[in-house]
Design a protein around this nucleic acid. Structure first.
Lengths: 120, 120, 120, 120
DNA sequence: GTGGTCTAGACCACC
DNA sequence: GTGGTCTAGACCACT
């Protein structure tokens, strides 16, 4: 289930786009799986249908989903290119945060130790 | 110098708050160092003075800076508590991204190797 | 055979109406020729019978076809008046496009040269 | 001034997109010229602000205009590539209509004569 | 006053 | 029931 922060500075439809796309890329949503209908999803998340519409349109524009009129929205098969892009973006964020941590006085070995604990 | 993304969904004053606070916590801005005047900063960043004002007020509220009337805004001495909070938040983000990377098929040792390369 | 663009903004039954009427006026469909039954046509075009029904009713209203109950829909004899209307409408569109081309910097002689090549 | 057909099957925002883009490509709207504000245009055309918004967003996506937040929408400099695309599309329509006219019994020389008269 | 977002409710074409 | 469009009115951040 998706949790939305309605007080956030990030727009609601962008939050939805971001979460759905993550679910797709990570495989939690399988190719050709049907997404909730605009109306059902809107009532589930307690937002207007237009907000869902905008999110779905954006996901379609970004290549994550496709639409069949009068039928519904479906998950596209994510190719390796898209996946690699996601990996690159995430590594970039990682690098950024690690740089920040070192500025805060944390040494790389400490970070690596932390990550190894995450693994468990 | 600060770069702002005026097309971003994140509000401009929030971008400023986020960047200044990072500069402070990481030590790039030293305690009691004077920040640019509202007007100068506004003209530097090509935004309105109100936007800078709002950013400074928020930074003051969050405890990063203090104000001396008719003199200017200054960097507060960041205590260890604040620093630790930052570290905790950053580690939380790190953990999040690592979880995402593993879902994308990257193994922890690969991530660690990547981090070691960053170190160089 | 008719090709439909189901992603178009133009409604499906309007696309059908437009294509059938062109086939009739241009003589590809001869007077008193029987049109496909609603059900067959619907399954051929992979649309619902209601859509075909609506298209046929509209074609009847516009005077292109007539219906014999329990028998089917048939092509009407297109009189010269209808034909002339079509010709006028098409010339109007032509004029429109030519005006646009001249605004784009294309000279009339170039357009005529292009048309002469089409002739071949 | 723009006239909208609210009874048309073509969506209102698409009508606006189509007309504005023609005005831009043909040079009636000059590069960096400011477009009407969302609200003013909406009240002029007697549509909702969202409809204008959608039209402007689409025009931006198609590369005809650009936006400066809190300032307005402006006409982009149309490069020759875009112009050539427009010319190609219009010639395609022309060819289509000419084919239809010939099916209706009009000979190419007649069409050329007609065009020459348009020239006057 | 500017763009941008959101809601709640409505209507349409289609399945 | 499905997506798609539209309205009218509201609030926000920024100039």
């Amino acid at each position: 289930m998706i949790y939305l922060d309605k007080t956030s500075n990030i727009t609601i439809h962008d939050q939805i786009v971001s979460k759905i796309s993550k679910l797709i890329v990570s495989g939690a949503l399988q190719p050709d799986e049907k997404l909730p209908s605009v109306r059902k999803f809107a009532s589930q998340l307690v937002v207007s249908t237009q907000t869902i519409n905008k999110a779905y349109l954006e996901l379609e524009r970004q290549g994550y989903i496709y639409t069949q009129k009068n039928v519904g929205y479906f998950v596209k098969c994510i190719n390796d290119v898209t996946k690699n892009e996601e990996i690159q973006k995430t590594f970039a964020k990682l690098e950024n945060d690690i740089a920040y941590l070192t500025k805060l006085g944390i040494k790389i070995p400490e970070i690596i130790n932390y990550i190894k604990k995450v693994e468990v």
